[in-house]
Amino acid sequence: KYLVLALYDYQEKSPREVTMKKGDILTLLNSTNKDWWKVEVNGRQGFVPAAYVKYL
């Protein structure tokens, strides 16, 4: 498993997404889509914009 760092705040806009705050450390679950990565944060799984996170 990889960890990624939230570069920006992101507010979920659909039930498939998750909210994150700048500085959050997220567990990367799937990065096959170049635009949306599946992550786990605070016990929830969902998608965030790939451009908003970077590998640690």
Score class of each variant (00 low, 15 high):
residue 8 Y to V: 12
residue 51 A to R: 14
residue 37 W to R: 02
residue 55 Y to N: 09
residue 10 Y to R: 02
residue 44 R to M: 08
residue 40 E to L: 09
residue 44 R to P: 01
residue 2 Y to V: 15
residue 18 V to W: 04
residue 53 V to I: 09
residue 56 L to Q: 07
residue 47 F to N: 04
residue 47 F to L: 08
residue 27 T to H: 11
residue 4 V to Y: 11
residue 42 N to Q: 10
residue 11 Q to W: 11
residue 3 L to R: 11
residue 6 A to Y: 03
residue 18 V to Q: 03
residue 19 T to K: 04
residue 17 E to H: 06
residue 54 K to W: 10
residue 8 Y to L: 11
residue 51 A to L: 11
residue 19 T to D: 04
residue 52 Y to M: 13
residue 1 K to Y: 14
residue 35 D to W: 14
residue 56 L to D: 06
residue 1 K to V: 14
residue 16 R to L: 14
residue 24 D to V: 04
residue 29 L to T: 05
residue 37 W to M: 05
residue 34 K to P: 15
residue 16 R to C: 15
residue 45 Q to T: 14
residue 36 W to K: 02
residue 27 T to V: 15
residue 54 K to F: 11
residue 2 Y to H: 15
residue 54 K to N: 08
residue 2 Y to D: 11
residue 7 L to N: 04
residue 30 N to D: 15
residue 40 E to M: 10
residue 22 K to W: 03
residue 44 R to K: 12
residue 41 V to Q: 10
residue 4 V to C: 11
residue 56 L to P: 05
residue 5 L to I: 15
residue 21 K to E: 06
residue 1 K to H: 13
residue 42 N to W: 07
residue 43 G to Q: 07
residue 25 I to N: 03
residue 37 W to T: 04
residue 8 Y to C: 12
residue 42 N to G: 12
residue 48 V to S: 00
residue 28 L to P: 01
residue 23 G to V: 01
residue 16 R to S: 14
residue 5 L to H: 05
residue 53 V to Q: 00
residue 34 K to E: 11
residue 6 A to T: 04
residue 17 E to M: 05
residue 31 S to H: 10
residue 41 V to E: 03
residue 14 S to A: 09
residue 11 Q to C: 10
residue 19 T to P: 07
residue 21 K to G: 05
residue 16 R to M: 14
residue 52 Y to P: 00
residue 53 V to Y: 01
residue 9 D to T: 05
residue 45 Q to L: 08
residue 29 L to K: 05
residue 49 P to H: 02
residue 12 E to I: 06
residue 40 E to W: 07
residue 40 E to S: 10
residue 9 D to A: 07
residue 4 V to T: 04
residue 38 K to W: 14
residue 28 L to C: 08
residue 39 V to N: 01
residue 9 D to P: 05
residue 23 G to M: 03
residue 8 Y to K: 13
residue 15 P to E: 12
residue 14 S to P: 04
residue 4 V to A: 10
residue 15 P to V: 11
residue 16 R to I: 13
residue 47 F to M: 09
residue 53 V to C: 11
residue 44 R to S: 07
residue 18 V to N: 04
residue 23 G to I: 01
residue 16 R to V: 12
residue 41 V to A: 11
residue 30 N to G: 07
residue 9 D to C: 05
residue 21 K to V: 09
residue 48 V to C: 03
residue 7 L to M: 11
residue 3 L to V: 09
residue 53 V to R: 00
residue 54 K to M: 15
residue 10 Y to W: 11
residue 56 L to K: 06
residue 31 S to Q: 10
residue 46 G to H: 02
residue 22 K to M: 08
residue 34 K to W: 07
residue 41 V to N: 12
residue 18 V to G: 02
residue 8 Y to I: 10
residue 17 E to P: 05
residue 49 P to Q: 02
residue 16 R to W: 15
residue 12 E to V: 06
residue 26 L to M: 14
residue 28 L to S: 02
residue 32 T to R: 12
residue 21 K to Q: 10
residue 34 K to C: 10
residue 8 Y to P: 01
residue 2 Y to C: 15
residue 26 L to R: 00
residue 4 V to W: 08
residue 22 K to S: 08
residue 23 G to W: 06
residue 38 K to A: 10
residue 34 K to D: 13
residue 11 Q to N: 14
residue 9 D to S: 09
residue 45 Q to F: 08
residue 56 L to S: 07
residue 35 D to S: 12
residue 19 T to F: 04
residue 29 L to N: 02
residue 48 V to D: 00
residue 54 K to P: 01
residue 30 N to L: 09
residue 48 V to K: 00
residue 40 E to V: 08
residue 55 Y to T: 13
residue 54 K to S: 12
residue 6 A to R: 02
residue 15 P to N: 11
residue 55 Y to M: 15
residue 46 G to A: 04
residue 36 W to M: 07
residue 21 K to P: 00
residue 25 I to M: 08
residue 20 M to N: 00
residue 7 L to E: 05
residue 1 K to N: 13
residue 55 Y to P: 14
residue 51 A to F: 09
residue 27 T to I: 15
residue 33 N to I: 06
residue 23 G to H: 05
residue 23 G to E: 02
residue 38 K to V: 13
residue 55 Y to I: 15
residue 26 L to T: 01
residue 43 G to F: 05
residue 50 A to W: 02
residue 33 N to Q: 09
